[in-house]
Structure formats: structure tokens, C-alpha cells
Amino acid sequence: MSDMSREEKLQVWLAAEAEIRARLKPGTMAIADVAALNPLEFFDGIGSGEFPAPPIGELMGFVPIEWSKTSFVFQGVPQMQHYNPIGSVHGGYAATLLDSCMGCAIHANLEKGQGYTTTDLRISYIRALTTKTGPVRAEGRIIHVGRSTALAEGRIYDVDGKLYATGSTTCLILGGK
């Protein structure tokens, strides 16, 4: 994609988001049903519309775009409902995107029957998000997955590769062996 113009890349991003959005159906699954699935099968099921997509995505306006054992990418477009009183997107929007992409990257590495919970979340804000920013991607990448804890890092960037925020997380791994 690096040899594409900004407009071409923007169109690819928006098309990918529209394609996924058309398949998603918000809802939840029982934790026992999620635990019975291989995590990548679970994410594939959400992406295909076979399984419900967590309602937080609809509330915050972001969708899963890409996922694998090494990374997880969400995409969203900051809107007016995400604004704070000082005229920019609330930091909680970026924090939620980063917490989600990093947590899902960790989840993708777990075994059936395992879960996780965030124990530490660190965010560094680089520049303000606004409605003029356009679509942004939050990409979480694995640093380490052990028996009891996992670490991931994340970043939010726009179609031009401009960085808006970075983060890191430590998660406690639950259940399993």
C-alpha cells in the first residue's frame, strides 16, 4: 500500500471498514461459549457475522479489520459524540481503541478455555484526534505471552501513517492449564 496515493489508500481503508461493518451484528455470547472456541475461530466468526460483535464497537464506532496470532487491528472514524469539552476527541476514545486492540491481540494467542483481564494500561497521547482526522487504525501487537501474564503494545495512526497515541498493557491470563 506504500506506493498508493493518499486518496487510494483512504478508499481502501473505507472499503475494508464498510465490508466488515456490513457483516457485523452486535450482541454478546455467553462466556462458556466463547471459552469453548479457539480464539482465532471466535474472531473469524465475528468478522464473518456468524457470531455477534461486541456492542462496544457499535457504541464507539470501531470495527475489527485484521487479526492474527501476532496482531489485531481495529478501525474507526472519530465523531462528534466522542468529543470532550475542550474541542477534541476525548482521550477515552483512544484508550478504548488501544485497550481493545491490545487485549484482542493477547486473546488471539490464548488456548481454548483461557480468558484474560487487563491489569495495567498505559497510554501516551501524541496529538489530538478530531472529526477531521478521518479513519484511524488501532494496531495491537504481542510482546510476550506467558503462563500467567501477557504483554502487548499498540498504536493509533491515520491513513498517512501519522501517530496519534501509543499504549502498552499487561493482562492476567485466566483459566486453562
Rank of each mutant, 00 (worst) to 15 (best):
P85D: 07
K132V: 08
A94H: 00
E19R: 12
H107L: 11
T119E: 09
D158S: 11
C104M: 13
G161T: 12
Y125W: 12
K132F: 12
A53N: 11
R6W: 14
D3W: 14
F43Y: 12
L14W: 04
G154K: 02
M29K: 01
T28Y: 01
T169I: 15
I106N: 03
A35V: 01
G76Q: 06
L98D: 00
A128E: 10
G103F: 02
Y125N: 07
E41V: 10
E19W: 09
P39K: 03
V12A: 11
E8K: 07
H90K: 02
A105D: 10
V63K: 10
S100K: 00
R6H: 15
P55Y: 07
K112V: 15
S5R: 05
G176K: 01
I156A: 08
D158L: 09
S5N: 05
S71E: 11
M80D: 15
T170H: 02
V73K: 06
G76L: 08
A18V: 10
G27D: 05
L151I: 12
E17H: 14
F74S: 07
P54F: 00
S71P: 06
E58L: 15
A94F: 00
V145W: 00
E7N: 09
A36R: 07
I31A: 12
V12S: 07
L163M: 15
A138P: 02
K112F: 01
Y93D: 02
I20V: 15
M1S: 14
D160W: 07
G92H: 00
I126D: 11
G176T: 02
V63D: 12
L151G: 10
Y93S: 03
E8G: 05
P64G: 08
L121V: 09
L129S: 09
G61I: 10
P64F: 02
G113K: 00
I106K: 02
G115I: 01
R155T: 15
Q114A: 02
A16D: 15
M80S: 14
